[in-house]
Design a protein around this nucleic acid. Structure first.
Lengths: 259, 259
DNA sequence: AACTATGTTTTGCTATACGAACAAAATATC
DNA sequence: GATATTTTGTTCGTATAGCAAAACATAGTT
């Protein structure tokens, strides 16, 4: 999968579509409501252009307009919904993630690889939500430094993994972040052998997580499921001794119930 | 909110954006993977056009390509995520919905009004999932015939409600569906007085649900929360006697914890 | 080998992008 | 509180990027 990609100035590249999607993405928690000019500056377009796209999105029902302010309409959820329903996530999987949360009292998620990032596809948050708000379906995190990312990278064929390792930029998020390519390769190869990954405060100090791959009945990789914990409360031993068997049992459950 | 809407042939309507979004929506559970030609026929475009849009979406990373087959990439989730995070859903609300499910053993959801339909924004499914698969975040249902829809319609100012009643088409989904405009108006006005709505198998026989409005601390309407049940198992009395107090208590909880 | 369905390229025509000029608010200054 | 100033929103003209349709090419089928 993924072959020759169109360069964004090819003869059959539709600029307008890319621009429109950019306008949608310009809205976030910090900018839920914006005027035309704000959208223009945030997206780097001139006001005339931003206006055309906002009016178009408004006409299509993806954006609401209140005098001078624009905001996203619920209709945009349909776009993501198209993906989720097309891929049959949110079926049994959501249920199983909630079971994991109930049995472990920790947050649990399913993520898939998209480029060099993992994308959260389903999630069940634990009660004591520390960074829970910022993690939700649709969130993207660098694959290299997350437990789910490493599990998914470990599933790649050798050549794709090598290509990834060659191109990836290793940002030191914490003092525990692996920033050495060889060390990262070793870590991923270890994940391949062991069948699970632990990321211990590599992305954020205080965040410790465990992940295993999830396959369907046909052996097709659905994604990675994880349990993420507060490092101050849960030692690494609990991850390997208690949570790993739990996660592996749930992965088997998925295998027998999906597909 | 919502004023003069652009007609789809105005000088500043961007056709290409609408077309691109249509292509995304062409994918669903029945058509998760399609060839160029399939997309063309499903969207009613010629192949050349469908091709340019698919290639564009591919270049932007919203679509994956495997030889002749295209499928949506996880990146499309970002679009819906922009909406959810911009509006601060999925914060405390998801948690509360799960509490409702735990305490009632029934599915619970939050939905908002979008045009004449309700859109599911957050959801917690019960174990015994009968029609659970088809209901998920992003799902749209006709406002007139759902409990959440009626709760939300009841919150509209009189003129907007009148306009809705004048234009809405009342499809008889079941033999219990209200298809008379005056009866529907009465039902909605009753919801206004009572503060809750019950839809008893109006959309699907076997589906009985109860909804109340949810406000944040500033009194702003967040949406409607509901409990939906299997009519064969749960009588209407249980809805009013047991589930209504529960739902109202949770609505108060939202009011004190959000905003 | 003929046929059909699918994917790709070409071409004349149309929609789109940009800058600039204008209009209307909002804000600052006196 | 009126007037200047700045910011924001809208309209217009024009070069060009992108479109639709048809012609062409290729891969599958019978």
């Amino acid at each position: 999968m993924q072959e020759e990609v169109l360069s964004p100035d090819d003869r059959d590249f539709v600029t307008a579509l890319g621009t429109g999607l950019e306008v949608i993405l310009a809205f976030d928690a910090e900018h839920p409501r914006m005027t035309l000019s704000e959208v223009a500056t945030r997206t780097g377009m001139n006001r005339a252009r931003a206006r055309r796209f906002l009016l178009t999105l408004h006409a299509l029902g993806y954006v609401r307009k209140d005098q001078r302010h624009f905001e996203l309409a619920p209709r945009v959820l349909q776009l993501g919904y198209a993906f989720l329903s097309a891929n049959g996530y949110q079926s049994v999987i959501q249920q199983i993630l909630e079971d994991i949360t109930r049995e472990s009292s920790e947050s649990s998620s399913l993520a898939v690889l998209d480029g060099d990032e993992v994308t959260y596809v389903a999630r069940s948050a634990a009660k004591h939500r520390l960074m829970a708000i910022s993690l939700a379906v649709g969130t993207r995190l660098p694959a290299a430094h997350t437990s789910m990312g490493r599990v998914l990278l470990a599933q790649l064929p050798d050549d794709e993994l090598a290509a990834f390792l060659a191109r990836v930029e290793l940002t030191p998020y914490t003092d525990k972040t692996l920033t050495d390519r060889d060390a990262l390769r070793e870590a991923i190869l270890t994940v391949r052998r062991q069948g699970y990954a632990i990321a211990d405060q590599e992305l954020d100090s205080g965040l410790r997580s465990l992940a295993v791959p999830a396959f369907d009945a046909h052996g097709k990789l659905l994604g990675a499921i994880n349990i993420s914990t507060n490092a101050a409360r849960i030692p690494v031993e609990t991850l390997t001794d208690t949570f790993l068997p739990l996660l592996q049992a749930k992965a088997r459950l998925i295998r027998t119930h999906v597909g």
